[in-house]
């Protein structure tokens, strides 16, 4: 309890991390309250009023190429981006951590799992995602899956390394000698040890995933219209960049700020949880 309090205080003293957390909390609130905060529904079009500049009455950030309210779409988009970040990381952790634990704990599987990881890493990331989406069909769900799959290797490696570092430690040996089953040893004694590096990496990965998913939406493979995903908003506004720069400006800023917040949070967590980890990532 005492130690935890110390961590928390250290974390709050970490100015940039605290800032990141505040932004993320704000985003979460915005996402949750989007229907109440947004001045308009996100999909309602008004073609005659398209590409209205920021400051137009009723549309503080202007309207897009179909006359939809950009502010409202941004607010709804916050939901999508946060969900993307969380689900992608959940997929990656859900596959990567068990695989990494298995590889680290049981040398029999180590070779196979690590070769598979090498193979995955050697595929160029965004192309791998593209091929996966081509196989499964475009859509937000498949995009999250594809981005999740190519984030798996990082988690395998981290988990395996942490497990390896404690495998021969006394307390694990003691548990084994006491006749504890493998599963119990792994979950009760070894995995908790990986939590800090996993938490740090997961935070960074949320950031990367939001960015990657936005890139995929930008080339038309992510969120399907009319979903107000920020990358997709950028993609459709792109053609009007010259005559209506605001249509791309705000989603771009939204992506930037959100990703930055997660990155700052991850950086702070790393400093606080384990100073030795600074060299990682």
């Amino acid at each position: 309890m005492n130690r935890r309090g110390g961590l928390w205080r250290r974390f709050l003293r970490h100015r940039s991390a605290a800032a990141g957390l505040v932004v993320i909390a704000a985003l979460a609130v915005v996402a949750a309250l989007a229907p109440w905060l947004a001045p308009h529904p996100p999909d309602v079009q008004n073609l005659p009023g398209r590409l209205a500049p920021p400051g137009t009455p009723g549309h503080p950030l202007g309207t897009d190429e179909l006359g939809r309210d950009i502010l409202s779409r941004l607010l709804y988009g916050a939901r999508i981006s946060l969900v993307i970040g969380i689900i992608v990381v959940a997929v990656a952790v859900g596959v990567g951590v068990p695989a990494g634990a298995l590889a680290g704990y049981n040398p029999r599987y180590d070779g196979v799992i690590m070769r598979a990881v090498d193979l995955m890493l050697s595929f160029p990331g965004i192309l791998l995602a593209l091929v996966i989406i081509a196989v499964l069909g475009p859509g937000l769900g498949n995009t999250m899956l594809a981005v999740g799959i190519f984030s798996v290797p990082v988690f395998v490696r981290i988990t395996r390394a942490s497990i390896l570092s404690v495998r021969e430690l006394e307390y694990v040996q003691a548990a084994r000698a006491a006749g504890a089953r493998d599963g119990r040893i792994l979950f009760r004694h070894m995995l908790p040890n990986c939590l800090a590096p996993l938490l740090v990496q997961a935070t960074f990965r949320v950031a990367t995933s939001i960015l990657t998913a936005a890139s995929l939406s930008f080339i038309g493979l992510g969120a399907q219209p009319p979903t107000p995903e920020w990358g997709a908003m950028l993609a459709t506004g792109r053609v009007n960049l010259y005559i209506a720069p605001h249509v791309t400006l705000y989603p771009g800023l939204a992506i930037f700020i959100t990703v930055l917040a997660f990155n700052l949070l991850g950086d702070g967590l790393r400093d606080v949880l384990d100073p030795r980890l600074r060299a990682a990532h």
Binding site: S215, L241, P245, T248, G252, I255
Partner: peptide
Amino acid sequence: MVVAMAGLSIPSFWLGLNLIL
């Protein structure tokens, strides 16, 4: 470090388009 983080967070497609503009 904040500058570095910004570099890490900026969507490259957005940056590229704005550089052209």
